[in-house]
Design a protein around this nucleic acid. Sequence first.
DNA 1: ACACCATTCGCAACATCGTTGCAAATAATT
DNA 2: AATTATTTGCAACGATGTTGCGAATGGTGT
Lengths: 148, 148
Amino acid sequence: MEKKTDTANIETKIDLLLKKSNLSVTGGRRRILELFLQHDGALSHGDIEKKAGEKFDRVTIYRTLQAFLEKGLIHSIPTSDNSIRYALCKDDCSDGHHHDDHVHFICTACGTTVCLEEVTLPAIKLPRGYTTEQVEVLVSGVCKSCNH
Amino acid sequence: MEKKTDTANIETKIDLLLKKSNLSVTGGRRRILELFLQHDGALSHGDIEKKAGEKFDRVTIYRTLQAFLEKGLIHSIPTSDNSIRYALCKDDCSDGHHHDDHVHFICTACGTTVCLEEVTLPAIKLPRGYTTEQVEVLVSGVCKSCNH
DNA sequence: ACACCATTCGCAACATCGTTGCAAATAATT
DNA sequence: AATTATTTGCAACGATGTTGCGAATGGTGT
Ligand SMILES: [Mn+2]
Ligand SMILES: [Mn+2]
Ligand SMILES: [Zn+2]
Ligand SMILES: [Zn+2]
């Protein structure tokens, strides 16, 4: 009676995401993508290294993050402390072309970094002669849960 | 005939700045502060290491930047590429308490980072529950000189 | 000008982070 | 199942940043 669910290859959301991005599905990629899906905050390379119970080589994590970035699965968030964080992209991010028009927030209490998708970027009017390509807004403060 | 200018100890702007910040004036600090004064773009640790003709130890540069930061002589600018840049503060920045309410710009062509003092920070309205402490705005694009 | 003390400097040693080349392992394709 | 393309782990390396400590130097008072 388990034949159907068995053979029908329960393609999890994760596998689908990977295939949709033209990435061959491997153990490491599955696990790292899983971490991003079950954690709504952003993750650094170090975070992943710790949270991934099963040990993957550091290099594999670097390369996986690189691959995810290039395929538009994740985007990077610059921080003041010289440690890049990564967060899942919304569905409409494809191959390097991102639509991350939102603000990033870093909690000074718990340290978590989140994407505030509902806060859109302000228009920045630059002096004559400058051309805008991209705007990054980084707000630090105390997050919802740390404020009780 | 050089007695006067000689003994009168030509206290350069640099020495005054250092003393005003309660920093003893040394060769390294003079040179690094000089670099900041004659370069209007922001400088990274690496930039300073290269530009300072006379060779200072890496550690000295780290410690000098740290001291300048603490005394409010410079402020740091986070970048996407994991390399912190530093820029001179305006005069009203004292001991850790900064008034850097301006936007930072990184040129994708020449790589220079500048403070756009004339562009003030936008107000960012966060969702309920979040408290704002600091806002960083980082704009990338093409700078004035690279646009002809 | 000199001596004293506090601060800073240079060096060595170390830790962390990130990159590259290559051979073995694994995934996709036929 | 065999072939091919991709990914992985390992080792080695470079870059970056930190710390401890003795030597050098700056500030200060005589
Ligand atoms: Mn985001
Ligand atoms: Mn600035
Ligand atoms: Zn928090
Ligand atoms: Zn430029």
